[in-house]
Design a protein around this nucleic acid. Structure first.
Lengths: 195, 195, 195, 195
DNA sequence: AATGAATGAGGTTTCATTCAT
DNA sequence: GATGAATGAAACCTCATTCAT
């Protein structure tokens, strides 16, 4: 087994262990036992426990980053609505496809310590900035209500995170399509009809 | 200083320490140093580190539970919309009033370990159930769109959690009124106008 | 309650606690709880935990010391045999009368630490010396076999200790008379008839 | 050094430390210092302090168990008297050969706490039962006096324990042969000649 | 490269004792 | 004298990381 494969194998098992136990309760022993390697071997491939965890989280960030595509409003091949829906869909798909990683992202990586919090916040800030600028474009085109785009971005992110949190933590059994549809309809019209 | 005061004093300092460092990085020594007491004194008042953390979280749960009031649709003194707004306002107010606790709730308490996750999920499940049944009432009255109330509840909760997370983690400086107003408007109409 | 009474009360309860739990497992808290006093009060009457334990053991030594009377061979009012029997009887009686103290002596006080071991050994050495010299007198009178009186003393002491150990530790239900009679007959003739 | 050797080495040093200081005064640090290993290494081989102590005591029990052989009265190659003597001799030999363990057994392990007391009592009960049944056989053959065999067993055990206690605690310098001979003669005829 | 025994810093908790009230 | 909250030394144990084989 070559070095890259071995790394990948350890990463995969570590991901499962972290997802199952949480960062602190996951011991190096659990990881090497799951991977079927010796303790020393782990350290041949990863600097330390923190490093492998960061690598898992960074990988997740990257995967999500790739899932998001800027909505093309100039020469769209799909309608704007469909592009938004496709965006939501690809994000949801990535998250659902790897529940262990999603759980790590939405639960285990949260509140680890101030340094890790900064990393997480910085990722969400990137997402937020991207969403905000997209929403601003949308406002220019009249497809996003006038209003505080930062707030829109935050609430959108929150709604999405919470659905996925419930999916991975409680096993909420919603298929991708239903999640996407509900989110889109929520963003489009809310649900309160009180005036 | 009597026993209750002393407990309260330790709780307050512990809360700050947990909020500053996170659960694991917060050492008993940090807490007792902050409280200006000896290490043994801590254990006179609390079983162990976990216990004081749980007490902080439970206190937060309780405070939030009290903040939520069922919307009265039968003999309302306020319009339904105003009641919803008041509900949102009181929750937001409680969270903003004590950012340390809010940070603990939304960050430090998350992903601590499977046991704590269950506690957290169970709290959110309670909130969710309450919201769902309120939303069902609302549907009967025609003030909530037909649709999946569980999803509505989750997305609402997520939007709210994310705003507060940003407020306590990034120091997002939104006043209570603005948060309430934005949330209400989001729940009422979303922001996408793509059809 | 005057000082002496209070001391006595604490001693009595401490004795029970030590007998029940053993020296180390007996906490000052257990003692003061049993005595119905405050923790500080304990220290008004006793230097420390060790001191009260020593006092209990010293008291037991004293009680046993008083139980033993030198056999009078010159102007006996009782036969020598009867005097020996009376001696055994009074020792057994003292031990059986206060099982808690006996348990402390034969179990809890044993192997506490080198310093306490010395105390215990010194007590047994006193007993041993006394027995040895009595046995020597007996040899002079022809009522004790020729032989190693130190060994006789040790084996006699051991037989007696073990009976009492079984009585207090296992609740071996032998009445005083039976124990005395068995011991005397054992010392008189052993039980092996192999030649 | 392989795992078994290392365990053995730690056991040996721990035995000395326990024998020297007693269970409670013996710190893990003393043991690891004596063994010349790091603290963590200790815990690699033993669950905890209690576990290594129990292992030492259990080992002693086992060694003693092996030393005792049932007296063969049907087709004896040695006379019954000689068989008894050999039995006593092998027990005494085992105890004298390893004074540290004997001291632990007769002093440090005594009165440790109720749980350990039960372990000890259960061992002595086993020995007692064995002796009692042997004595009953002896009575049937007429080589043991009629009488209470349980009492005989207890007194025999006590005499033996006390001799060994004196040997290891006071350095009583009796050679094996002398101890055996004295014990045998004591069991055979006692020493009192008072009518 | 792989192993796994060894390391030791670091943290939690206990509990005998003190002392202000 | 009595109280009981406060103290802090001391001890155990864990586990990430190292390193000789």
């Amino acid at each position: 087994m070559d070095k890259t494969e071995r790394r990948q194998q350890i990463l995969t098992h570590a991901r499962n262990v972290f997802a199952k136990r949480g960062y602190h309760a996951a011991k190096i022993d659990d990881i090497v036992a799951a991977a079927g390697i010796a303790r020393g071997t782990f350290y041949l491939h990863f600097e330390d426990k923190r490093a492998i965890f960061e690598e898992i989280v960074d990988g997740a960030f990257e995967g999500l980053g790739k899932a998001v595509v800027r909505v093309n409003t100039e020469h769209p091949t799909l309608s704007v609505a469909d592009q938004i829906i496709e965006n939501i869909r690809s994000i949801v798909r990535v998250l659902i496809a790897d529940p262990a990683t999603t759980k790590i992202l939405l639960s285990d990586a949260v509140g680890l310590d101030p340094a890790f919090d900064r990393k997480l916040l910085s990722f969400y800030e990137g997402i937020g900035k991207f969403l905000e600028s997209s929403l601003e474009d949308g406002q220019a085109l009249g497809i996003v209500s006038p209003g505080d785009v930062r707030m829109f971005a935050i609430m959108t992110l929150g709604a999405m995170k919470e659905i996925m949190y419930q999916v991975v933590m409680r096993g909420l059994a919603y298929p991708e399509g239903r999640i996407v549809e509900q989110l889109f309809s929520f963003l489009s019209a809310g649900y309160l009809r009180v005036t």
